[in-house]
């Protein structure tokens, strides 16, 4: 897939619209999930998705191949998503050290409605801060290394490791609270 994506980027740099369409189809679903889970708004997620691919169309010629295409692409999406979140509520993004607070009453209500493990996972993911959620999703949805994630979110590798450590702990705490001691 990576080789295919790199070839597509070369063709996109030469203004090949068919290559751009192929590139869109290759990444649209994964990228949309990455954006939507942070914004939690379909219309805004559509906008960011469009802006991200448009940025690829504009800047494909500047891609030097120093990282994977997916790392570059998710980096653009991450920057635009966090920018939108920052505009919406600066505290959600900048307050790195504030602990995530799990609303126990909401948790209890949702627990009754939850049908399976996927619902619990979605519920707990929704409670993570965008920065924590991003590193966890990039690691477990996209199987990126911590070095690649550091490039996507533009922060030191140590910060990525710390964020994913905290995200993992928070997920564990949340899931244990909802599903008992199975984990």
């Amino acid at each position: 897939m990576t080789t295919g994506a790199a070839e597509l980027i070369e063709r996109i740099a030469a203004r090949d619209e068919a290559a751009m369409a192929d590139f869109y189809r290759l990444f649209e679903a994964r990228l949309y999930r990455f954006i939507k889970t942070k914004l939690n708004d379909s219309f805004e997620a559509d906008d960011i998705l469009n802006e991200t691919f448009l940025e690829v169309w504009r800047k494909a010629g500047m891609f030097e191949g120093r990282s994977k295409v997916s790392t570059w692409l998710f980096g653009i999406a991450y920057y635009k998503t966090m920018d939108r979140l920052r505009a919406r509520n600066p505290l959600l993004v900048s307050d790195e050290l504030a602990p995530e607070v799990v609303d126990e009453s909401a948790q209890a209500d949702a627990c009754v409605l939850a049908a399976d493990d996927a619902d619990h996972i979605r519920f707990c993911l929704d409670r993570l801060k965008a920065a924590h959620r991003a590193v966890l999703e990039l690691a477990f949805f996209e199987d990126m290394s911590y070095g690649e994630i550091a490039k996507v979110v533009n922060c030191p590798e140590g910060t990525v490791k710390t964020r994913i450590f905290h995200a993992k702990q928070l997920m564990k705490h949340c899931l244990e609270g909802r599903m008992g001691v199975r984990r």
Partner: peptide, 15 residues
């Protein structure tokens, strides 16, 4: 287990 279950959560259809 967390990774597997995260990957099994259905993708919400994009545009």
């Amino acid at each position: 287990s967390l990774r597997r279950e995260m990957q099994e959560t259905a993708l919400e259809p994009g545009p």
